[in-house]
Design a protein around this nucleic acid. Structure first.
Lengths: 196, 196
DNA sequence: CCATTTATGGAACGATCGATCCATAAATGG
DNA sequence: CCATTTATGGATCGATCGTTCCATAAATGG
């Protein structure tokens, strides 16, 4: 059935390598040289397999979103309570302070900041990803209300946006070099805002 | 005293024009072509007057910070109460939703996100600017405590960082295209977290 | 074993990047 | 008016950008 020379690389691993490059350097600043080196393939193969830089970036955004939302969704389902999930997520993020991971930030928020309200597909994708994060937070808030940890009369949509704002702001603080102590205190204040 | 041909442009206006370009496009994406066009001067004049792109960017960051911190400082002093200052600032920012101004974001947070924890002077400058914003918020919180709007036993430093996180997160939400209604609700939740 | 198909390596493309250089313009002090 | 000093416009630099193209390698089906 298949004819011709078979590819000598894993498209999956190559795409993940590209994602890491975009994550660390941003869309514009990530050069094709950087990408080729990290993906360990030749120019021809990159363009043959992924089209061009923008399409490769879209693939990276897609993978990042799918991985993030999937992981958080599973974690929410497995958590003993939605509030425990939210508190754990934000506290762990605060604990990243000072690490290389903290310096990376989040590819979605990074891209939203870099691309803003552009017309292109990457910008649209980033905005949709933020909406997906907010939707996940909304699920968590609704469950926390059902579990009695958040008052049922509070606006779940507003609280979800509040959490998205909190995560975006927290990631900015971590990028600006805030220490784990400060980040932890901020997160506790953020969580207090949830409980009442 | 002064010899030679006088400059035919206003360095002050030129620097402000450069600041607006960096604000709208980011550091790396702002090309010297963009800058020259906005500043309305020739390459020679730019390099003669401002050194190079990085030094011009530093000047832009310096001006933005001075303008922002100065304006907010005056506004805080003039406000009937520190809490009124904070509520007004965040509510007005939320009202920018959907506007071109909202798409621009804040040059300081934009730069912190783009440059992260780099070694260079621009990154350092952005981090110091975030610290300056937090310091201003701390003043406001301390005054609000003295004025009875925030309980005196609360940690002013933590609340100041909480506000910086809130502003950074709010700017990200605005960039991602959230509407004024959602932004307004988020800000009210943020302000509730201040009062208790 | 040959014709066909696909992947690969690398040269090369035009465009643009930030930066430098030089001839010329336009002011000054003497 | 002339010598000097500084600013300006524009050509030009080497490097790098994203992308395309072509010759070659490596697999397949017949």
């Amino acid at each position: 059935m298949t004819r011709g020379r078979p590819i000598a690389f894993s498209p999956d691993e190559a795409a993940n390598a590209a994602m890491r490059v975009f994550w660390a350097r941003g869309y514009e600043s990530a050069s094709t040289r950087d990408l080729l080196e990290a993906m360990q393939l030749s120019r021809s193969s990159l363009y043959q397999a992924f089209g061009n830089k923008e399409q490769l970036f879209l693939e990276a955004l897609r993978r990042y979103r799918e991985s993030l939302v999937g992981r958080l969704g599973r974690r929410l389902v497995a958590a003993p309570s939605a509030m425990a999930f939210l508190a754990g997520l934000f506290r762990e993020t605060a604990q990243e302070a000072g690490s290389e991971r903290a310096a990376l930030g989040c590819l979605i928020f990074n891209s939203a900041s870099e691309l803003g309200q552009h017309d292109g597909l990457p910008s649209q994708h980033a905005r949709q990803s933020i909406a997906a994060i907010t939707a996940l937070f909304r699920q968590a808030v609704a469950r926390a209300q059902a579990e009695g940890d958040i008052a049922p009369d509070r606006d779940a949509d507003a609280l979800a946006s509040y959490l998205t704002m909190g995560m975006a702001g927290l990631r900015t603080l971590l990028k600006s070099g805030v220490d784990a102590g400060q980040a932890g205190q901020v997160v506790e204040l953020l969580l207090d805002g949830l409980r009442r």
